[in-house]
Design a protein around this nucleic acid. Structure first.
Length: 586
RNA sequence: GCGCCCGUAGCUCAGCUGGAUAGAGCGGCGGCCUUCUAAGCCGAUGGUCGGAGGUUCGAGUCCUCCCGGGCGCGCCA
């Protein structure tokens, strides 16, 4: 259940009733910061103090009294300047947890009342280039958001908007003729394409004739030249094979792969429409939207005077043009209500402009730029794709390194008799732990902040890191294995009670899950789920240290098994919502 | 020049959109493995929230200015 929403409605009713108001007022329910103030506090009385011209404490008193009879609330008392502190009734919490335990499909998380069709546009790498650490964020943040929204019950379309149609293909076609190595293209296609691209773009920089040839080849490709088309298709093909391997490793999938090329035919129409409707005009032979021309344009855009160019003076289209066509497609063909663009913060201006244009075009869709910070190096400057020794930090090599480090730790642990991994499971556990560590290091941070890339931190196995959470899960699973108790059967019948302090702490964390999922989903902030699961794992580890499960007896044993099962499922589900897996033994 | 973002413990970061005595991890210090996995648990230490004003019952959070850093700004994506 959505706890805060429930308490908010209780509080709001209590305020209206207790104070004899004509309508409901927000109760402003917030979790308390310190357990001595109870579990939640109602701040609404202080806000009302001014409106009603009465001392907040005086208003808080009847509110607290109105709440004291409610099942969920053990005690409601006035404190400080006018807080109403709510202590939840442990028996009530326990009954809610028991309900969640009986609900393996949803873990007590309700589905949304109004379902939206939401396109999540994420990852979107350029074809013919290797993915590097910079691509990690969009890919895993977008994946996590898509997972969360789906779980909430929304109709989600995961779209990989590949960069498969830009100027780089002119360079690649010319470059392959000049320096291409058939054998290398067959054996290691993407690195070969990258090598050739680099040569070609360098050459184009100081050889105008060469650059001109590249432009001509691009034009031929875009006009349907058969040979160039075949070459391009080959580039796309080998790139997708390589990309798929990375996505498989990351357990990321897409519903559609509608790259820029998919919208090529729509681009002239986009420009025509913008011109016909007077939104864009020609300037120096290029077609641009000038914000100064448009009274209804956002103030910030008008002030900034940066035009939105949709056709270059040479007649070529840009990604701005493609993006407009893409929104139109999503609206008309996909019937989407929303689109989320999981793209680096640095493209903020582009999206601000794009969204403003779509509004001028009258496209009724909720468009959001889900920005994220830049990946920085240890020097605090944007990370270059090469490390100090000149090697490319590809995503594949990052993931490999992490898996290897995980394996090393596991082997040490086995040798020291600490870990329980069976020899035949080492590969799988290394994979789940290694990949999970990388994902967690990224996802646990607020996506908006810049990201300082640090091998040791990213592949950390201690403290607030991926393995900590997976370890807590393995402990849960291990209890059931050792006690030879079937988790699902136990979950279907156990009744949870909260007696010991550590049980109550754990129980209160478990109760918050649905709220956290909803908050993460509505604000597109996967780190909220990471934070919650971390705190849950801590609470579980505390419980684990304090409360014997298998050695307990009767209803206590059953209840503790129930708490363990619910913890296990919530950790597994929560990690699953951000794309991280678990293992039973580690 | 114009526009966006950031500055919180030695380091890396949270801080639920204005609530009470600002929280974690790492590092350092001190404890805990004859009891379900020590990748764990417990404790102590660590802060003028960049600075100065302001708004109000109440500010890390909102406003103004200043200092310091990052990013984006006409034909790349």
């Amino acid at each position: 259940m959505l706890l805060e929403r429930y308490l908010e409605s209780l509080g709001s009713e209590a305020i209206q009733e207790a104070l004899g108001l004509d309508g409901p007022r927000p109760a402003l329910v917030r979790p308390t910061q310190d357990p001595k103030f109870g579990d939640f506090q109602i701040n609404g009385a202080m806000a009302l103090g001014k409106e009603l011209g009465r001392p907040p404490r005086e208003l808080a008193q009847p509110i607290a009294e109105a709440l004291t009879g409610v099942d969920a609330i053990a005690k409601a008392e006035v404190a400080g300047p006018g807080f109403v502190n709510i202590h939840l009734e442990p028996a009530w919490i326990a009954s809610k947890l028991t309900e969640a335990l009986r609900d393996p499909a949803r873990n007590g998380v309700p589905t949304v009342e109004d379902v939206s069709k939401i396109v999540v546009d994420f990852s979107s790498p350029n074809i013919a280039k290797q993915m590097h650490v910079g691509h990690l964020r969009s890919t895993i943040i977008g994946d996590a958001i898509a997972r969360i929204l789906s779980f909430m019950g929304h109709d989600v379309v995961r779209d990989n908007h590949l960069g498969d149609w830009g100027t780089q293909f002119g360079l690649l076609i010319v470059g392959m003729r000049e320096w291409g190595d058939e054998e290398a293209l067959h054996a290691t296609p993407v690195p070969e394409l990258e090598r050739v691209y680099k040569l070609a773009s360098q050459r184009a920089g100081n050889d105008d004739a060469f650059a001109e040839r590249a432009r001509a080849e691009l034009a031929k490709l875009q006009n349907g030249d058969e040979e160039n088309r075949r070459l391009w298709e080959h580039f796309v093909d080998v790139s997708r094979t390589t990309l798929n391997a990375v996505y498989a490793e990351l357990d990321v999938s897409f519903d559609t792969w509608l790259g820029e090329s998919a919208y090529h035919d729509a681009l002239p129409g986009v420009v025509e429409e913008l011109l016909a409707r007077g939104i864009a005009r020609v300037d120096d032979k290029a077609v641009c939207v000038f914000w100064d021309d448009i009274d209804s344009a956002p103030k910030a855009l008008r002030k900034q005077k940066t035009p939105f160019i949709v056709r270059k003076k040479d007649g070529a289209f840009l990604y701005s043009t493609t993006d407009i066509a893409t929104v139109q497609y999503r609206k008309e063909h996909l019937r989407a209500d929303r689109a989320l663009y999981v793209v680096d913060n640095r493209q903020g201006l582009h999206f601000q402009q794009l969204f403003a244009v779509m509004k001028l075009l009258g496209v009724d869709m909720d468009l959001e730029h889900i920005g994220f910070g830049t990946v920085l190096g240890n020097d605090g400057k944007p990370l270059r794709t090469r490390d100090a020794s000149g090697n490319v930090i590809t995503l594949v090599s990052l993931l490999e390194e992490s898996k290897q480090r995980a394996r090393q730790r596991i082997e040490e642990g086995i040798a020291e008799g600490r870990l329980r991994v069976r020899p035949e499971e080492i590969d799988e556990v290394s994979r789940v732990v290694g990949i999970g560590a990388v994902k967690y290091a990224d996802l646990r941070q607020n996506r908006l902040s810049d990201y300082q890339f640090d091998w040791d931190k990213m592949i950390s196995f201690q403290g607030n890191a991926g393995p900590y959470l997976q370890y807590a899960y393995a402990r849960c699973a291990s209890i059931f294995a050792k006690g030879e108790v079937d988790m699902d059967a136990m979950a279907a019948s156990a009744t949870i009670r909260l007696d010991a302090p550590a049980e109550q702490v754990l129980g209160k964390h478990l109760l918050r899950f649905a709220d956290v999922v909803y908050q993460a989903g509505t604000t597109s902030q996967p780190h909220l789920i990471c934070e919650h699961i971390y705190e849950l794992a801590r609470a579980f580890n505390g419980f684990y240290a304090e409360c014997p499960v298998l050695d307990a007896e009767g209803p206590t044993r059953e209840s503790r098994l129930g708490l363990t099962a619910l913890s296990a499922r919530q950790i597994r589900r929560g990690l699953g919502l951000v794309g991280i897996g678990v293992v039973d033994r580690m």
